Amino acid sequence: MRFSLIDKLLDGKNNSCILCVGEKSLPGPVLEYLKDREDSKLDYAVDSLVKNLLVPKGLKSHKQQYTIALKKLLIENKIKIIESSMERTFGQFMDEIHDKIYDQYTSEKMEFALNKLLKTSLQKHGESKLNDELAGKIIVYLQEICKLDENKLIKERIERIIFLLEEIAENKIEEIDIHSKISLTQIVHDLNDEQKNSLYIAISNDPHALRNFASKLGYYIYENRRANGKISPINSFIFDEADEFIPQSATGSYAQSSQIIETLARRGRKFGLGVGIATQRITYLNTNIMGQPHTYFISKLPRDSDRESCRSLCNVKGDVVSNV
């Protein structure tokens, strides 16, 4: 976890919190505290956050000084789990994990065989909401397939799906205290609140889930403002490590996040919605989106490919050196 904006998170004048996309984004002791918010579990939860804290090199010796601030975050309900992160159908789930199952080593023949094996469960449950109960049923079905199919590579990919479904089957978000959860509707309401500033930082242990959340939140607020003709307050969606959200030739969950970011970058400004992207690998980015921002801050570019991308983007010949 990074807490570079911890002072803003603790500012009582803001709607602010850390949004956890999936309960496994948090250390176990923190999750235990959020279930019933017992005081006896607080110090252990804070200690686990400190141990997982990522701070700049120059602040490492002062890491323990974050203890008071982290305790305050927990007490004031500034760390929440997003309820809506688990609201998707089995079909949507399969789309999310596409890149985890069908990698560069998956031949067309293998993909055809996998699709054939999964066809029955997708036809039966594709439009059903994926909860712990349904995940358990599908796991049993896939385990039977593994027993019958002798192809080692096929079994390996089926086992990947089972592993990801087991995380859902074991999901205990219902046990989390109501004050430690937040809905997508509440987030959008806060972002549209003209009386208070808002700061939400989304984190997840699963990059696919984070891209899916970015897609849902972006479309939700874009359609909300478009339908109501709302243009304020101004919202800015900042994507760090942008190559994980808007890569070239995106598929699966990458395509979902790339599509909404392109929509916001091209058409969001007329509804008060903007986009900021930060990356160290410009070469990998979707060029349709890279041409949309009005302002660029460019630091060291040691790779020729990144420099060439910047020259092309800004229509500049040769290297340009500027002091700011």
Rank of each mutant, 00 (worst) to 15 (best):
S4D: 10
D11K: 06
S16Y: 07
E23H: 03
K24N: 12
K24T: 15
S25L: 14
L34R: 09
D36S: 15
R37N: 07
K41T: 04
G58S: 06
G58R: 00
H62S: 08
K63I: 13
Q64S: 09
Q65F: 07
A69R: 12
K71G: 15
K72G: 07
I75Q: 08
N77G: 09
N77L: 11
S84F: 13
T89A: 11
F90G: 04
M94F: 04
M94N: 06
D95R: 15
I97A: 11
D103F: 06
Q104E: 10
T106K: 03
K109I: 00
M110C: 03
M110L: 14
F112K: 14
F112W: 11
K116S: 14
H125M: 13
G126Y: 09
S128L: 15
K129I: 15
A135Q: 06
L142W: 01
Q143R: 04
I145V: 11
C146W: 05
K147M: 13
L148H: 10
E156A: 11
E156S: 10
E156L: 11
I158T: 02
I161P: 01
N171C: 10
K172T: 11
K172D: 15
E174M: 06
H179C: 13
K181V: 03
I182V: 15
V188M: 04
N192Y: 00
N197R: 10
S198D: 00
L199V: 08
A202D: 00
D206G: 01
P207I: 03
H208M: 04
A209T: 12
R211K: 12
R211W: 11
N212H: 15
A214W: 11
G218L: 09
Y219N: 05
A227Y: 00
A227V: 13
N228F: 00
G229L: 05
I238A: 09
A242E: 04
E244Y: 05
F245T: 12
F245M: 10
I246F: 10
P247M: 05
Q248G: 13
S249N: 13
T251H: 09
A255T: 03
Q256D: 14
S258W: 12
Q259I: 04
T263C: 06
L264I: 14
R269D: 05
G274F: 07
V275I: 09
V275F: 07
G276K: 06
G276F: 14
G276I: 13
I277N: 02
A278I: 15
Q280G: 06
Q280W: 05
R281P: 05
R281W: 11
I282R: 00
N286G: 07
Q292V: 12
Y296A: 02
F297I: 14
F297L: 12
S299Y: 08
K300A: 08
L301F: 02
D304S: 08
S305P: 00
R307Y: 04
R307V: 07
S309Y: 11
C310E: 14
N315F: 05
N315K: 02
N315D: 15
K317I: 12
G318A: 03
D319Q: 06
D319V: 03
S322V: 04
